[in-house]
Amino acid sequence: MNSMIFTRSLLSNTSTLRGIVWKRAAIRFYSSQGPKKLPPQYSILDIKKKYSQGIPLSMVTAYDYISASWVNKAQCDLLLIGDSLAMTSLGYSSTTELPLDEFKYHVKSVCRNQDGPALVVCDMPFGSFEAGISQGISNAIDLMKLSPRVTSLKVEVGPLAQDQYTVEFVKQLCSRGFPVMAHIGLTPQRANSLGGFKVQGNKDPMNAVELYKTAKKLQEIGCWSTVLEAVPHKVATYITQRLSIPTIGIGAGDGTSGQVLVLSDMLGLQPTEHLPKFVKKYDSIVDQVNTSLEQYKNDVEARKFPETGVHTFKIKDDVYDEFVQIIEKENL
């Protein structure tokens, strides 16, 4: 009788103990585990602080894990996953050809690199929002969910008087809490309607006025920054001075809050004879690559590579002798 009471008591206590253990395990899991902690990355507040201090912002494009590591290790402020990868990396003749799914693949590749602090901005490619605002918002959500490192979206916007749809789309994104960097001036996705890749706001003063109005409107509806591309220096400086958000220039002079360049242009990653006027070519990696590959080919043909003892692995003589004996004995 006493043994039965003892057994019931033990089972009861064991059940209670298990409950406590499971409860504590659950509390520990939900309170202290959480998502994997990522290395420090600049926030929009960090960028705005630097902007308020008058320190120029550096922004560079990246299209995969390796190029992202270069940008991060250089401690650049911002990293742009631009749809320009269509032409610089994938062989398309225009950014408008780039499929959204293919672009997403590169976004994920870039974001896997966490070697530095660069704030990641992701383009919204052509076709990802033009069919309708609801479709655009859905695609924006998908892009932001690809990685927690995607901090902001960038949307190309035409002149205010002609592109009220995109302005409304950007407004809807901002109202939903999406951080949006606008892009005005020369917008490559709209190059055909602009008459080609041309400077904007340099011929007709009303075109410059329209650029100014567009920039002001985008700030008003919630954009935290805007890119000014291929805009006369004086116009870009004027617009920058009258905005309270950072401007990032590309072919817009040094009066903007920061600069952005396409990585393949500035490093000479591909044989391009005619670069835009605003590009400063810091290196010509393609020449180094071609020279190295030619040397490799010559070394292989001359049997200079691989060099025995330098690029090869060893095997003990007795092991090798036994290997040969086995082959010969079994007549393999």
Rank of each mutant, 00 (worst) to 15 (best):
314 K>E: 14
322 E>N: 09
262 V>F: 00
282 Y>C: 03
278 F>R: 00
269 L>Y: 04
316 K>L: 06
315 I>L: 06
328 E>V: 03
313 F>N: 13
312 T>R: 10
318 D>E: 06
279 V>D: 01
295 Q>F: 10
316 K>Q: 08
302 A>L: 06
267 L>E: 05
286 V>E: 06
271 P>M: 06
301 E>W: 02
276 P>G: 00
277 K>P: 05
277 K>Q: 12
274 H>E: 10
287 D>L: 14
307 E>F: 15
322 E>I: 08
319 V>N: 00
308 T>A: 15
321 D>V: 12
306 P>F: 08
282 Y>I: 02
304 K>M: 11
313 F>L: 13
282 Y>Q: 08
300 V>P: 01
308 T>H: 15
303 R>T: 13
274 H>S: 11
298 N>V: 04
280 K>A: 04
307 E>N: 14
318 D>T: 12
275 L>F: 01
313 F>T: 14
311 H>S: 07
290 N>R: 15
314 K>S: 13
271 P>I: 05
290 N>L: 14
320 Y>K: 10
316 K>M: 04
324 V>I: 14
320 Y>L: 12
269 L>F: 11
272 T>Q: 07
317 D>G: 10
321 D>Y: 10
301 E>I: 06
310 V>G: 04
275 L>S: 02
308 T>P: 07
318 D>R: 04
271 P>L: 09
262 V>D: 01
266 M>A: 05
288 Q>F: 14
263 L>I: 05
301 E>A: 09
275 L>R: 02
272 T>D: 01
314 K>L: 07
289 V>K: 13
307 E>L: 13
322 E>W: 05
266 M>R: 02
299 D>I: 03
306 P>R: 05
273 E>D: 10
283 D>R: 09
315 I>M: 05
302 A>F: 04
273 E>K: 11
300 V>C: 09
270 Q>D: 10
268 G>P: 00
286 V>H: 04
